[in-house]
Design a protein around this nucleic acid. Structure first.
Length: 191
DNA sequence: CTGTTGATCTGCT
DNA sequence: GCAGATCAACAGT
């Protein structure tokens, strides 16, 4: 399966977030292939989005969101968790990224179980910080090119119909709750 | 400099 | 349902 091209990410962040549903996030470590189907995403934009990390301008942490699209923005939060985004924006914006919130485990489930120290598959990658732990994604993957088939990339996956996508407010934020920029599949992700 | 908050998860009540 | 873990960013003194 081919990695998604740069042009996929060169569109409005909200559209990219919606279109990433059903795609496959692939992680390669020491010859192991760990992957999962993207089941939930959120768009974070720039000056029109008070909930975005970039709202107050560029910092050392968020500079990837201002950089080349199709790369990974990994941030550390709550003193112990990493979350991974795909940098994406149209030319109308200077910054933007899509947070990957949930995966359906596909390959490398034994690796994920060891990373997470649990065996319950339904609890392996169903949260933004859970999936980075399962796929061993840390600051080392900051800025990784997701369009190249290297250590971390995204390929085509399932065809998702418009009618199977549910939009809602983003999770865990206190600002801009009017923006329906959280996207997930209407179907149970474990079917 | 100090204090508070946060795109979270876990374990306990 | 809620406390605790514990670091980066930011507002305030």
């Amino acid at each position: 399966m081919k990695a998604l091209t740069r042009s996929f990410y060169d569109r409005d962040t909200v559209d990219v977030a919606r279109d990433l549903l059903g795609k496959i996030l692939v992680r390669k470590i020491n010859g192991n292939t760990i992957s999962g189907i993207i089941a939930e995403t959120e768009a974070y934009r720039y000056k029109d989005d008070p909930a975005s990390h970039t709202y107050g301008g560029m910092t050392e942490r968020n500079k990837a969101m201002f950089g080349q699209v199709g790369r990974a923005y990994v941030y550390f939060t709550y003193g112990m968790h990493y979350c991974v985004n795909a940098v994406a924006r149209s030319s109308d914006y200077e910054a933007g990224a899509v947070l990957i919130r949930s995966l359906v485990p596909k390959t490398g489930i034994d690796f994920m179980s060891r990373q997470r120290k649990i065996s319950d598959i339904s609890n392996l990658t169903n949260g933004p910080a859970k999936l980075t732990q399962a796929l061993k994604i840390t600051k080392k993957e900051y800025g990784e090119d997701l369009t190249k088939r290297s250590n971390l990339f995204i390929t085509d996956g399932l065809e998702i119909k418009k009618s199977e996508i549910l939009a809602g407010p983003r999770i865990g934020i206190k600002k801009a709750n009017d923006k329906m920029w959280n996207f997930k599949m209407t179907k149970n992700i474990f079917t």
